[in-house]
Design a protein around this nucleic acid. Structure first.
Lengths: 404, 404
DNA sequence: ATCCAATTTGTGAAATTTCACAATCGATGG
DNA sequence: CCATCGATTGTGAAATTTCACAAATTGGAT
């Protein structure tokens, strides 16, 4: 067959195209979508490599392979221009020599075609052919999902705002779109510090889809936030969400040098009718992080907020109260009058859970000084600082005071 | 002058009546209102005793004297019937021999007349005379305050409900009624477990007025509650309120065998426009006490509530949240499955502020067992129990859970 | 200048906590 | 029936905390 016109026909399926490319380039072919999920692969292959095997078995490119391809500069190259890329052998992820080309419609990446080097090494003319083949694949990949996407997005907003009520109703609607419903899901919100344009949006969705820690059922955007419904994915059960939230900023930084994006997730619920709840919780996490003093690491999930889950209502009540806890006011007064540091000492003391040694070290004073100060504080505020409830009250009050 | 007709005339003032009685009975006379505040005393006295001197100097009967008179059964006797009572010398309060009679209008006690024994000892016929004199005093005492009282009461309710707004406006109105405005004041609410009838109401007002720890500017009632505006009185500054709240149930029990009355006070404010705030705080104290598990002593003042001041908003938010803290749920689950007591162990541990020894003693297990359990808990809930914020979160969550 | 009270630091003994290790007991599953 | 695991209790040594006491320092107040 002739290389110049082998592509001049209609392919009824992606498999047919893959087989055609494979035949022409004499090597196994794999076609993936923009999230590196397997779309098609050539069949009459004589040999293959470990990376391709696990991709086909798992119906997606394994996460560690994607990671490596980013770090090696291969995926960055595919993202930046339209030319096919030659890829040397990368032993530690079981990747043999191959050539890859992006399938793109203008700036949008629709997918990737991979050709493993077969009986002969791939040269310049193969690259030209692969580029043509990739152009051919656009039609196959561009099965205009956009109308459908918009419909889904609208429905997602109904779920987020609590408009769709009945569990069964939601399940019925979702089963039209998905093979399996999420058994556990949480709403994740990603908040960008910089303007969220289409390009950044696509990057974020890409990182999300390739994380392999969560499966996204819906995603949408709102101002500078991206909202999506995520299911923790096998083999991670509950922790899938947490792992994703942890990895996400790392990925964004490594791959796109973006550091301005804060993630936050609501609780994981087993019920689809709790999506609204989870969404509000995710927003609450972001709000708490915004108000947290800078020296504390941000929270990722609602579940780990602890007492901070009440921060909003407590602060609201505090604002109504003209004066706060009289104990703290008394301490401030004393410090003011006597040039002492009792307030900070108490703060530190409570912060380290009453550990005199740590507290004294943190404040650069002798242990006995710390001990003396705490005794002093006890006298002034007339409270026993070994009483757990008093300590709780004071620490809560101080922590809330420190929030912006 | 004849004893039989000495009283058959009009007395233009209480002093005149006091002098008349003094002359007839040949001893110094003191007239007090129902709260043992001095109304009048005879002047041409040759001798007197320490109790009378300090009563006249302080313009009220000292608290310790009132206390003693209750314990000695003298005031109880005056409260129970209309007959004058002979009182022996009570050395430790500087009280000489005297005779006393209640001034009453049916069941209401309006005041008391005291006659110190002078040059001769007081006999039966003196008692008869004193009883007549007391009847004469009714007119003087009964200067129908009721209309004025009602007006005050209405205004107090306006203050309590936040209707009267401006500080100056309030001060202006109050200066019509009182010589001096309260510089610091708090609203105190007394809540009765049993039906609050007039008799009980009067008893409570009596105890309040005779406590000498607070001065009451207004008082009113609402269902089974009595509400009043109290100023801590010299020489007690801020603590006056607390001392009153502490003494009140003791007094009620000692004097009237009443134990069903719970007191609660709002913050002490320097501004009259914060009366509404203080009232709401007082009600909050009572509400918290109602929800507190039985083994904890009730709170008296809003200032000492600590984190319980947020109990209402926290509970409200908790009720919205379908599931609570996942850590505690996990512990309960574990306990259920393994017949263990990890939850209670954690509870006890946090309750005693992380003191292993106390915790183990309270649960009747070995210290190492306790230590092991806590380590176990840390594993299950995936939280470091030396972290003050985790401990705070857990204890707060548990405490709120325990509230009714 | 001097005194006094509050604060800080040091010392050492007693109490408490922590930790590693081992033995016992009971339930569970093969 | 045995093996195993989790829970409990015990022992003892090392580390840490607590507490009493003393000495030095400081900043005012008289």
């Amino acid at each position: 067959m002739d290389k110049h016109n082998a592509l001049d026909r209609t392919f009824s399926s992606m498999e047919e195209l893959a087989d055609c490319i494979s035949e022409m380039m004499q090597g196994p072919v794999t076609v993936e979508d923009s999230s590196h999920r397997l779309l098609a692969y050539s069949t009459h292959d004589d040999h293959t490599d470990a990376a391709r095997v696990s991709t086909i078995i798992g119906r997606r490119v394994p996460e560690h392979v994607i990671n490596k391809l980013w770090k090696e500069g291969i995926l960055p190259a595919l993202h930046q221009n339209e030319e096919p890329v030659r890829i040397p052998e990368i032993h530690d992820i079981g990747l043999g020599r191959r050539m890859a080309a992006p399938v793109r419609n203008n700036k949008d990446i629709l997918g990737y075609i991979w050709v493993l080097e077969g009986s002969r090494s791939l040269e310049e003319q193969d690259a030209a052919f692969l580029k043509k083949a990739a152009a051919k694949a656009i039609v196959q990949l561009q099965t205009s999902h956009t109308a459908m996407q918009q419909h889904r997005r609208d429905y997602f907003w109904r779920l987020l705002t609590g408009d769709a009520a009945q569990e069964e109703e939601i399940a019925g609607q979702l089963s039209n779109w998905f093979n399996a419903l999420p058994s556990r899901s949480a709403v994740i919100v990603l908040e960008s510090g910089i303007t969220l344009d289409d390009s950044l949006y696509d990057k974020i969705i890409y990182v999300m889809n390739t994380s392999r820690k969560v499966k996204s059922y819906f995603h949408t955007r709102d101002q500078n936030r991206i909202v999506f419904l995520a299911e923790p994915v096998y083999p991670y059960s509950e922790e899938g969400i947490r792992l994703f939230l942890h990895d996400f900023p790392v990925m964004m930084k490594e791959r796109f040098q973006m550091e301005e994006i804060q993630p936050g997730a609501g609780s994981v619920y087993r019920s689809l009718s709790r999506i609204k709840q989870s969404y509000e919780e995710a927003l609450h996490v972001l709000e708490v992080n915004r108000q947290l003093p800078g020296d504390r690491p941000p929270f990722l999930q609602y579940e780990e907020l602890g007492f901070y889950r009440y921060a909003d209502v407590i602060k609201k009540k505090k604002n109504r109260d003209p004066e706060g806890d009289p104990s703290l006011a008394a301490l401030h007064e004393y410090d003011e009058a006597n040039q002492t540091e009792l307030f900070d000492s108490l703060r530190t003391f409570l912060h380290v859970d009453g550990n005199m040694k740590k507290a004294s070290e943190m404040m650069h004073v002798h242990v006995n000084t710390m001990s003396y100060r705490i005794r002093r504080v006890e006298n002034i505020i007339q409270k026993d600082l070994k009483n757990a409830y008093h300590k709780l009250s004071l620490l809560l009050e101080m922590t809330m005071e420190e929030m912006k």
